[in-house]
Structure formats: structure tokens, C-alpha cells
Amino acid sequence: MDKVTLEVVRSGGRRIRYDLRYRKGMTVLDALIEIREKLDSSLGYRHSCRMGICGSCGMTIEGVPRLACQTQISILKTDVIRVEPLHSMGVMRDLVVDIAPFMAMHKSVKPYIMRRNTDERDHSDREYRVLSEEVRRFLQFDYCIMCGLCYSACPTVALDPAYIGPQAIAQSYRYMADPRDEGWDQRIDLLDTSHGVWRCHVAGACSFVCPKDVDPAKAIQMARKEILKKRLLRRKARVGAQPVPLLSSGVVKQGVKPPPFDFGKGSVSRK
């Protein structure tokens, strides 16, 4: 292959073809940059890190939501590549879509450590003891770069714009699974709604397209399990059973205790 054509769906649905010389190792982003710099300065697309970590360059490439920067042209097995904006997000110009509603969903699930003692969290000098296996319970969900590919791929998002979506649910679960967090009850209430976790049809498209190997579909299932446990416990409570901590032994309800701090700071004088 020494030539490649990008067929870009631009604002208003125009399909424009750009012919380029193919170079070994060329990515779709390389091609788009070459188009803007050499063929058509008006082509709109976002990009920044070009190393698959900033989440800017999500777009639909050959029918699948992908990051342009880490999509090698050679793996697409075609010399005419269809490039469209991400789906389920409003087009602002060419391949640039409106990510504000997606970002708002992330915020809506309270994606931060909640503690009863906010002063200890924000203004102390302590640390919480967290074991490596506890980190592993939430770490993969923390890989999310907020690129919106899962949101774009999700068939439920396409039908129900009020659905919280796979990204936000995965982030909510990330904090539920964090032993430092004490916001479990609030998180459950935010997800246990008609536009929450029960809306998911378990298509699994989110996990399939994630460029960082996050598994939002798993997070959705795990969150459902937590909700069912909570309902079950409420029923049990009525018959007098003792509630037990839900995620791991005693850790979630109590929060992790910071170890004592016993060394001073700045004891060395300047020479």
C-alpha cells in the first residue's frame, strides 16, 4: 500500500475524500494532521497528546469508535478509510463533538472521595493505609481517560440521553470499591434509578471499544450487585438480621484509619 484515502464526514454530512501518501507506521491522526497542514486547513478535529492518554481524538473510524492517535492505518485493512464524528454527541464542527453532556454525567455521580470528616481529608497530614489488593479492586476503572468512546458506542445512550452511561457508572463504582470512600449509600441512590444501572442492556459495546481496557460493563454488573445486596439487607434488617459491611470487612463503613505520624518536618537548618 503506498496510498491511502480518508473519507471524512464533515459538518452537514458532506463526505470529503482526501488522498495521501501512505508511510509505514502512519496512524489516522497522522493522516488528519497532514490533511489540515497540507490539503485543507479548515478540517475540524481535536488532538493533543498523540500517545493515547489525553482522550481528545475520539472519532468513529471504519464504523467503530476509536482514538485516532493509536489507530494504525495498517490494521484497518482498507485503503479508503471512513472517518465520522462520535455518535450520541452533537456535532459542533466536522469531527468535533459536544462533550459537555458527557462530562456533566461524570460530575453527576460525585466522582470524588467522600468522608464524614472532610477536615481530615482536606486539611490534615495523614494518609490512609490501603493494601495493594484493595487498590486492584478499583484501579482498572481509574484508567478511564474520559474520551467518550464507550458513551458513543453504547446502544442505550443512543436511545435514552438521560441514561447516566457506562463511563459515569464505572467511575461511580470506582469510588464505591475504594476503601477510603464513605459515600457508598449516596452512590447507590444515584445509580438505583430508572436512568441508572438498570437501563443497561448488557450489550458490552462499552468494554469492547475502551482504548484503555477499562471494563465498564463489569462495573455496571458490580454496581447492580451492590444495589441488590443493599435491598436484601434492608429486608433482612426487618427480620432482625445484623447488617454487615458490604464491600470488605469493616473497611467501607469505617473508612481506613490513617497510621499515626511520628516524624517532624524541616528539622534541618540551612547550611
Binding site: I113, R121, E127, E134, L139, D142
Partner: peptide, 25 residues
Amino acid sequence: SLCPEEMRQLERWGMPWSRREDGRI
């Protein structure tokens, strides 16, 4: 002088620092 406090501040805000066996940073 201020670096250590920053590591712990981020820790309390949810940073997934890699851990020692005893759970410290």
C-alpha cells in the same frame, strides 16, 4: 519541605498510589 504533604494530600483525595506490603505509599 512541602513535597511530602502533597503526596499525602493527593492520597486522601483518592490517588491510587502504588503501595508497600503494609499498605503505606
